[in-house]
């Protein structure tokens, strides 16, 4: 396995739905421990790109490489097995289930003979607490239903599930949408913590301030094409907004 070079490479990724082209020839690389932003106006192709990277959809053309190895995902389970986890805008959580149950959904811990498939509830609660502790939420009861949690806490649960899958790449779709100021700050801090733990993060957001605050680089899409990318240290949120509108990156 190559450890030099980009962690994730996209080459000529395209996606068509019948006559409609949602993505066309999108190329970019993502390095290890990088926090990269993907932005663009409505219809730019951000959601389609996420769905392709998360295995929810297959591209019509192009190639995805992880550690220089060409891969194709037929389902979200394939992407998870490759260490790519996605947290969605609606967080894809089951509100009535507990924090621990949400963290371990699809990766349950078992006790006793494996063929019986008996759940190890205690170990799942204990380990979920360890994951949440990494995001500064150590004092929450892991048996609490997710519906009782704040938006920031729910993001932490979604991220804990991603870490549970030992994800090397976490894709976050609109992580601060519908959150208050304090909760948004909490989520940006979660992203920084992920990076400090060696996880590569892809943030898709409409919020330019958030992208400038937390990412190292931003890829700009317009009408299904990549129009450019820019290091966030060189740009303000206002300028980034102008680039999205004009489609000119300079």
């Amino acid at each position: 396995m190559a450890l030099v070079g980009p962690l994730l490479e996209l080459r000529g990724i395209g996606k068509s739905y019948g006559p409609v082209t949602a993505l066309e020839g999108v190329d970019f690389d993502i390095g290890r421990r990088e926090v990269i932003g993907i932005c663009g106006d409505n219809g730019a192709g951000k959601s389609t790109l996420i769905r392709i990277l998360s295995g929810a959809e297959q591209p019509s053309g192009g190639e995805i490489r992880v550690n220089s190895e060409a891969i194709s995902f037929r389902s979200p389970a394939d992407a998870l097995a490759r260490g790519i986890a996605t947290t969605y805008q609606d967080l894809a959580l089951a509100p009535r289930l507990s924090i621990a149950q949400n963290v371990f959904m699809g990766g349950e811990l078992l006790r006793g003979p494996k063929f019986l498939g008996m759940l190890d509830h205690r170990r799942m609660r204990d380990e979920a607490a360890l994951y949440l502790d990494r995001f500064g939420f150590a004092d929450i009861d892991m048996g609490r239903p997710v519906s009782d949690l704040s938006g920031g806490q729910r993001q932490a649960v979604a991220l804990a599930r991603a870490l549970r899958w030992k994800a090397r790449i976490v894709i976050m779709d609109e992580p601060t949408a519908a959150l208050g100021v304090a909760e948004s700050r909490q989520v940006l801090e979660l992203i920084r913590r992920l990076r400090s733990e060696g996880v590569t993060v892809i943030v898709v957001s409409h919020d330019m301030d958030d992208l400038v605050a937390v990412t190292t680089r931003v890829v700009i899409l317009k009408k299904g094409r990549k129009v450019g990318e820019i290091e966030t240290a060189r740009v303000t949120s206002g300028r980034l907004g102008e680039m999205i509108m004009s489609g000119v990156v300079a």
């Binding site: 929810a56 894809a92 089951a94 149950q101 959904m105 498939g117 599930r161």
Partner: peptide
């Protein structure tokens, strides 16, 4: 309540999209 498959049935009914995205 106590088995993996039973729990996964509950997950599927609670939020089928979440269950699918979790690889179920």
């Amino acid at each position: 309540k106590q088995t993996r498959n039973g729990f996964r049935l509950v997950c599927t009914g609670e939020n089928v999209e979440a269950a699918r995205l979790a690889g179920l």
